[in-house]
């Protein structure tokens, strides 16, 4: 059974991975952490990255591009899915946020859950050893596996 810890261990197997965390972006809470964090404090890092994730998730410019179909319908809600009840929360419109910094790459990957949540995976990647494109794809797969059986 893959849980938070197994998922974080998977993330750390990516080449150049320095540290990772599962974070709730509404509260800034780190639900699980592994490896290093840029400022040596996983909790502070989580609160800071959560703010970035929230800004990205809530900006209409990113959210609207995906589905501008029906303006009468609640503006930012995605198309109805047959496998979900009508009260199910809409999935995140933004998939990930990538920040390239002098001290490394940061990928924030939103995790889509079947229940109401605001969770993302944060990976801190070494610039010389990491492969940003590969890491982004793998992180997406891990995020999916985290909430699937």
């Amino acid at each position: 059974m893959p849980g938070i810890d197994e998922c974080l261990l998977d993330v750390m197997r990516l080449p150049g991975a320095r540290g990772a965390a599962v974070v709730d972006w509404t509260s800034g809470l780190a639900l699980g952490t592994i490896g290093e964090s840029p400022n040596g404090d996983h909790e502070a890092t989580a609160a800071e990255t959560a703010e970035v994730a929230r800004m990205a998730a809530e900006q209409p410019v990113f959210a609207q591009a995906a589905h501008t179909a029906d303006p009468a319908h609640s503006a930012l809600r995605g198309p109805a899915r047959p496998d979900r009840s009508p009260t199910a929360p809409p999935g995140p419109a933004v998939e990930d946020v990538i920040v390239t910094a002098a001290a490394g790459y940061h990928i924030l990957r939103f995790v889509e859950t079947a229940f109401d949540s605001s969770v993302f995976l944060h990976l801190w990647l070494d610039r010389s050893e990491g492969n940003l494109a590969l890491a982004r794809i793998r992180l997406g797969e891990i995020a999916e596996r985290l909430v699937l059986a």
Binding site: F115, S117, V147
Partner: peptide
């Protein structure tokens, strides 16, 4: 098989805090 393990952990931790 009703709830995936990771999802349950996320949901339960959220409810706990």
């Amino acid at each position: 098989g009703r709830v995936p393990g990771g999802a349950l952990e996320l949901c339960h931790l959220g409810a706990l805090y």
